[in-house]
């Protein structure tokens, strides 16, 4: 296929309420940080695209935030659909948020079985306090999950540390994972999104109507 479209990869944020998913989202979006006191919750945030360059390849990461649904209910299963990557976020100063990763992992494996999964320990800016979750514990968790976890990162949204590096690395991993998959994908008739365009969307790769 001779398309030159930049591949877009949906990446979702998962994790407990309050671990900093929206902060990561904000850093990704416009590299800002809003302290807890002025923050309402995840209002008005949906998803955003950003391009990354991996070697000679362009890739568009489309990062999705939960919309705050996890506050009292659960996130809808459709949130996970079509995700190519999932970032499991926990807070380094909150052991409980680390222990519930297995539940979030189960959701990802159930609803987005093809997604590559990454772990992100947020709030690395502890200012002398001991983290509640040690590197060994994270390692042990990854080992239990066998090969499910592709990589782990540490970030601080407050001081903006490790975030760009994380998204850069995730882009690299997704490009790699996709080389073979994309070719396979091209063979199948693609579904499409409906939009405002008055012109009907033509699926070049789809089989044409024979009747």
């Amino acid at each position: 296929m001779a398309t030159v479209r930049i591949p877009r990869q949906k990446v979702i944020l998962c994790g407990d309420y309050g671990v900093g998913k929206s902060s990561l989202f904000r850093r990704f979006t416009n590299n800002t940080f809003v302290s807890e006191s002025d923050r309402k919750s995840t209002l008005g945030l949906d998803h955003i695209d950003r391009e990354y360059k991996v070697g000679d390849k362009q890739i568009k990461l489309q990062l999705w935030d939960t919309g705050g649904m996890e506050r009292v209910a659960s996130v809808t299963s459709s949130y996970y659909k079509f995700a190519e990557g999932a970032i499991l976020v926990f807070a380094l100063d909150n052991a409980a948020s680390f222990h519930s990763l297995s539940q979030h992992l189960l959701d990802i494996v159930t609803y987005a079985e093809n997604a590559k999964i990454f772990i992100c320990g947020n709030k690395s800016d502890l200012e002398g306090r001991e983290p509640e979750v040690s590197d060994e514990e994270v390692e042990a968790f990854c080992e239990q999950c066998h090969t499910l976890i592709s990589a782990t990162y540490k970030t601080s949204c407050k001081i903006g540390e490790g975030i760009d590096e994380m998204f850069q690395d995730i882009s690299r991993q997704l490009v790699q994972a996709n080389r073979s998959k994309m070719e396979l994908h091209a063979l199948e008739q693609k579904s499409f999104q409906i939009d405002t365009a008055s012109e009907p969307e033509i699926n070049e790769e789809g089989t044409s109507c024979s009747c």
């Binding site: 995840t42 945030l45 919309g67 705050g68 649904m69 506050r71 009292v72 809808t76 459709s78 659909k81």
Partner: peptide, 22 residues
């Protein structure tokens, strides 16, 4: 894709994005 159950979920997300509590 994935059935009609995706439709209510999509609108639920819209509601949540605009401040609805679930």
């Amino acid at each position: 894709m994935y059935g009609l159950g995706e439709l209510p979920q999509g609108f639920a997300r819209l509601s949540a994005i605009y401040g609805g509590t679930y």
